[in-house]
């Protein structure tokens, strides 16, 4: 078995995708690109009577642009859905995926975590309740950054509780139920 796949007695407690607001720039860019390219198509038709060749070239360029915009829009949509923070009974696995371009997985042993910092910077992070978690592991010099985590306080409290042995003797199902129901993790 690869060291990356789950161990025998390990099971997934919670899987969190990045916050939806991460997709906002993609949606805005897609909307702006489509608006601009539609206007370009319209201008090509207006140019037809002046210079037919130039109009046709602009029309084709705008079609290429539309096809490329659609391609990148769906690429980032799927990348967002596939990039998850997975907390298992013994590890944190951070998946960062962009099909065919990036396929990263960061794995941190839960018992190796020394310090957890929660950051929520800016208006949108405080309004929509998402942020960054910084993990400092024993013997490590650099902080591990987990970006765009939904409910960072809940995740940080959960990890802190786990680190302090609050779930010792609990089954993965019990830990999962506790995570989902416990209001104090919010």
């Amino acid at each position: 078995m690869s060291e990356n796949s789950l161990h025998e007695k390990e099971s997934v407690i919670v899987s969190l995708s990045d916050h939806w607001s991460v997709l906002m720039p993609t949606f805005v860019f897609f909307f702006l690109a489509m608006t601009f390219l539609s206007l370009l198509c319209y201008s090509a038709f207006s140019l037809k009577n002046v210079n037919e060749f130039l109009g046709a070239v602009i029309l084709l360029i705008s079609f290429i642009g539309i096809f490329l915009s659609i391609h990148f829009f769906f690429l980032y949509l799927v990348a967002w859905r596939l990039s998850d923070l997975v907390i298992t009974t013994s590890r944190i696995i951070n998946l960062d995926v962009l099909p065919f371009i990036r396929n990263d997985s960061l794995i941190v042993d839960l018992h190796q975590i020394n310090e957890i910092k929660k950051l929520r910077h800016g208006f949108s992070q405080n309004i929509f309740n998402y942020g960054t978690l910084l993990l400092l592991v024993f013997g490590g010099t650099k902080e591990i950054k987990l970006l765009n985590i939904k409910y960072p306080s809940k995740v940080a409290s959960f990890l802190e509780a786990y680190k302090n042995g609050l779930f010792n003797g609990c089954t993965p199902q019990e830990i999962k139920a506790r995570y989902e129901s416990d209001e104090k993790f919010m």
């Binding site: 796949s5 997934v12 799927v78 995926v97 099909p99």
Partner: peptide, 14 residues
């Protein structure tokens, strides 16, 4: 690419 990423995810998370 989507399906490959999915299967690598399934493998990773068993």
């Amino acid at each position: 690419g989507f399906l490959k990423s999915l299967s690598s995810r399934h493998y990773l998370l068993s």
